[in-house]
Nucleic acid binder design. Structure first.
Length: 644
RNA sequence: GCCAGUGUAGCUCAGUUGGCCAGAGCAGCUGAUUUGUAAUCAGCUGGUCGGGGGUUCGAAUCCCUCCACUGGCUCCA
C-alpha cells in the first residue's frame, strides 16, 4: 500500500499502481467524471497514470488552470486530427494550449485556409470528438520516433525529435492521429463538446523571423456549449469597449494618414482627460518632493552615443536629422533619461541634495515596425510620465518604497482593484548579459525584494527579465473584463550614471557615483488611457471625466434658465455643457447617454417655477428633482464614493 | 518587416457573373415643430468607390504596385 496526500492534507492509502482517476473515483463519482488531469509530486500527468510510491496528488478539473490547459492541449491534438482528415497534406509544427484556448502551427503547403473553412473544421472536430477516442500514451525510442515521422514526411516533427534525448520521447495517439507529445492529456475526446476556430494568423516556425512562416490556427473548446456562448459574449463586450472605437465615438483622439501612422492626435475632450490625469500625478509628485523639468524633443546624436542607446537601438530608430550647413546630427528623443542625466551633471552636486527627483511629462518618439502599431497602445510618439531619482546606494530602498507607495496610490485612484507586480531579476545562468558589479546588483535586487515585502504587495518573480542595466518591478493590473495589462515600471540603474560620469560629493568630501531609479506610474499617457477607456467602457471616474453634466432644456424656451444653472454649478466646481439644440428631450437624453456624460439635468416649466433641476444619472435613469445646492451636495458625495 | 485579411459619404453598411448619371440609415445644413426622461417631421447637401498604374468598348467590381487599418508573428530603450 502507498500513502497519497491530498491538497486538504488528508492521507489515504491505496494499492501501488493506483491512478489519479481511481483516487477521484474513491472520493466521488462526480469528481471522477470531471477530473481532466492531475499532479503527482508537482508534475502534471494524465489522470490514468499509475502511481508507484507515496505521493502528493492534486486532481484537476475544468475549474483549475491546469485542468483547462490539459483540456485545451488535448483539443489541439483533436484539431490536428481534424486537419489531417480534411487536408491530408498538412504538415504539423507545434500545438500548445494558451491562456484561453490553444493553437496549432501548420504548414498547409500551397493551400491557404480562409475563414470559410472554419465551420467545416469545427464540425469535423466535434464529429471526431464524439468518437470518444482515448488519448493513448506510449514511450518510443528516438529511432522509432524518427522513423515514424520520416515515413509521414513531417520535417517539423523530425526537427523537434532530433533535439530530444533518447528515452524521454513519448507519443500520444487518439483515433488515427499520432503526435509527438510529452502530455498530459485528458482520458478521451468525449468531453470536448463545443469548438470554435478563432482565426488564422502567420507565425514564424520556432519564432524565428528568418524561418518559414507557418499558419497558426487559433481555436478554443469547451465542455459545454453554454460556456462557448458566454466566452463569445465576453469577446463582444471587449469589442464594444475597444478604445479605438470609443476614442473615436467620444472624440478623444484621432489618427490621420497625412500626419502619419502611429502618431495620435489628441482632440479637445481627450486632451482634457489627459491633462487632468497629469495634473493629478503632478500634484502627488510635488507632495513627494519631485521637481518638474522640460527638455527638448530632439537631442544631439552624441547624447545617445554617451547613453549607449545609439549603439543598441540606433539602426532601428528614426534616423538622425541634420542641420543644413554644419551637418550636425540630432535624434528625435526616444527617452528622457539622458537629458535628465545632463541636468544632474550640469553643476557639482552634494550628498545633501540627494535624493534628487527630476520629473517630466516627456514626449518621446520611437520607430515601431508598421505591423506593431495598435491604436493608442502601441504608437510612434507618446508621452511618458517619467521621472528619474538620483540617490545614494543607501537611499535606494527608501526611494523604492516611496515610488511603490506613489504607484499603488495612482493605480487605486484610477479605480483598478486588482493589481500585482512582477520582480524582474538577473538570469543567474547568464551573468554576462548584464553590466555593473555583483555587489551593486545584489544590493539593488535586495532593495526591490525587501521593499515589496515591506508594503505587502503581491508579486511574482521572473529571472532573466531584468534590463541589462538593472533589476526592475513591473505593475500588472486586471481590468473590468479580467484582462491583464502591464502598466508602468520602476527600474534601478547603475549604467547611465557611469556612462555620464555622474558624481556627487559625499560627507567624506570624496566623489561618489549616484544610483538612478527610472519610474513611470502610468507608463505612457497614451497606453494608460487606452487601458482606462476599456476598463471603464468610456464611463470615466467623475473627477476625471471631461464633462460632468449636460443640461437638457425641455425646449428652447428654457435655454436661458439652463445658462444660469451652468454658472451656478461652476461655483461649486462642477463642469458641464448645455444641449441647446432644437431637438426633442428624448433625443437629447439619448445623445447624452451615448456620450457617457454622468449627469443629465433636465429643465422645463416645472423646474423654472420651483427653481430646481431634474436629475438623471447616465446608465441609471431619473433620480428626481433637486435644488442646485442639493445636487451639488449629492454630486460631492458621489465624488467621494469614487475616491474610497 | 513577415503571413492572412480589410479599405465605398463624417459614421455604420448595400452595391448580382465588369454594363445606364454609385445607394440607404445616422450625422450635417435649411425649414416646420417648442417638445418631460434613450431617436419629431420634411427637404437639401455630401463620394474622382484608399492612392497610382494596367487589362477592357466599358472597372467600385479583374491584375500590378504603394498606403492605411484589422488579427497574429518577430520586436519594444
Amino acid at each position: 500500500m502507498i500513502n497519497i496526500t491530498l491538497p486538504d492534507g488528508s492521507i489515504r492509502q491505496y494499492e501501488a499502481g493506483v491512478t489519479p482517476m481511481d483516487i477521484a473515483l474513491s472520493i466521488s463519482e462526480g469528481l471522477a467524471r470531471n477530473v481532466l488531469s492531475a499532479s503527482v509530486n508537482g508534475e502534471v500527468v494524465d489522470a490514468t497514470r499509475a502511481i508507484a510510491n507515496d505521493a502528493v496528488v492534486r486532481l484537476f478539473t475544468w475549474n483549475d488552470r491546469e485542468g483547462k490547459q490539459t483540456f485545451w492541449h488535448s483539443s489541439a491534438h483533436l484539431l490536428a486530427e481534424t486537419l489531417e482528415a480534411l487536408y491530408p497534406n498538412v504538415k504539423f509544427g507545434i500545438g500548445p494550449p494558451i491562456e484561453t484556448g490553444f493553437y496549432y502551427d501548420v504548414d498547409t503547403g500551397d493551400m491557404t485556409l480562409t475563414p470559410a473553412d472554419m465551420p467545416k473544421i469545427e464540425e469535423k472536430m466535434l464529429e471526431l470528438a464524439r468518437n470518444k477516442s482515448a488519448y493513448a500514451r506510449r514511450s518510443v525510442s528516438k529511432a522509432e520516433a524518427l522513423a515514424y515521422f520520416t515515413e509521414k514526411n513531417d520535417p517539423y516533427k523530425l526537427e523537434l525529435i532530433n533535439e530530444l534525448e533518447d528515452g524521454t520521447i513519448t507519443f500520444y495517439q487518439q483515433g488515427n492521429f499520432t503526435d509527438l507529445c510529452k502530455g498530459p492529456h485528458i482520458s478521451d475526446t468525449s468531453p470536448i463538446k463545443a469548438a470554435k476556430i478563432m482565426n488564422f494568423a502567420g507565425a514564424y516556425w520556432r519564432g524565428d523571423e528568418k524561418r518559414k512562416m507557418m499558419t497558426r490556427i487559433y481555436a478554443v473548446t469547451f465542455p459545454k456549449q453554454k460556456e462557448l456562448t458566454e466566452y463569445l459574449e465576453l469577446l463582444e463586450e471587449a469589442k464594444k469597449r475597444d478604445h479605438r472605437k470609443l476614442g473615436a465615438e467620444l472624440e478623444l483622439f484621432m489618427f490621420s494618414e497625412k500626419v502619419g501612422s502611429g502618431l495620435p492626435i489628441w482632440l479637445p475632450k481627450g486632451t482634457q482627460l489627459r491633462e487632468r490625469l497629469q495634473n493629478y500625478l503632478r500634484g502627488e509628485q510635488e507632495k513627494r518632493g519631485y521637481q518638474m523639468v522640460v527638455t527638448p524633443h530632439i537631442g544631439h546624436k552624441l547624447l545617445y552615443e554617451t547613453s549607449g542607446h545609439y549603439a543598441k537601438y540606433g539602426a532601428d530608430s528614426f534616423q538622425p536629422i541634420k542641420t543644413p550647413r554644419e551637418g550636425e546630427e540630432f535624434l528625435l528623443k526616444p527617452m528622457n533619461c539622458p537629458h535628465h542625466c545632463e541636468i544632474f551633471g550640469h553643476k557639482p552636486r552634494s550628498y545633501k541634495e540627494l535624493p534628487l527627483r527630476i520629473g517630466e511629462f516627456g514626449t518621446v518618439y520611437r520607430y515601431e515596425q508598421t505591423g506593431e502599431l495598435h491604436g493608442l497602445s502601441r504608437v510612434r510618439g507618446f508621452t511618458q510620465d517619467d521621472a528619474h531619482i538620483f540617490c545614494t546606494q543607501d537611499q535606494v530602498k527608501g526611494e523604492f518604497l516611496n515610488v511603490l507607495e506613489l504607484t499603488t496610490q495612482v493605480i487605486k485612484k484610477m479605480g483598478f482593484k486588482n493589481f500585482t507586480a512582477q520582480i524582474s531579476l538577473r538570469d543567474p545562468n547568464n551573468p554576462d548579459k548584464y553590466i555593473g558589479s555583483d555587489e551593486n546588483w545584489n544590493a539593488a535586487e535586495h532593495a526591490i525584494i525587501d521593499a515589496t515585502k515591506d508594503v505587502d504587495l503581491e508579486t511574482t518573480t521572473a529571472y532573466g527579465e531584468a534590463a541589462f542595466y538593472g533589476p526592475k518591478l513591473d505593475f500588472m493590473i486586471k481590468d473590468a473584463l479580467g484582462r491583464s495589462w502591464q502598466l508602468g515600471t520602476i527600474q534601478v540603474d547603475y549604467n547611465l550614471p557611469e556612462r555620464f560620469k555622474l558624481e556627487y560629493i559625499g560627507s567624506d568630501n570624496k566623489a561618489h557615483r549616484p544610483v538612478m531609479i527610472h519610474r513611470a506610474p502610468f507608463g505612457s499617457m497614451e497606453r494608460f488611457i487606452s487601458i482606462l477607456i476599456e476598463h471603464t467602457a468610456g464611463k470615466f471616474p467623475l473627477w476625471l471625466t471631461p464633462d460632468q453634466f449636460m443640461i437638457l432644456p425641455v425646449s428652447e424656451r428654457f435655454n436661458e434658465y439652463a445658462e444660469g444653472i451652468k454658472v451656478e454649478l461652476a461655483r461649486f466646481d462642477i463642469r458641464g455643457l448645455i444641449d441647446d439644440r432644437n431637438e426633442s428631450i428624448g433625443k437629447k437624453i439619448r445623445d447624452t447617454e451615448l456620450k457617457r456624460i454622468p449627469f443629465m439635468l433636465i429643465v422645463g416649466d416645472k423646474e423654472v417655477e420651483q427653481n430646481t433641476i431634474s436629475v438623471r444619472r447616465q446608465g441609471q435613469g431619473d433620480l428626481g428633482s433637486m435644488t442646485i445646492e442639493g445636487f451639488a451636495r449629492f454630486f460631492n458625495e458621489e465624488l467621494e464614493k469614487g475616491e474610497e
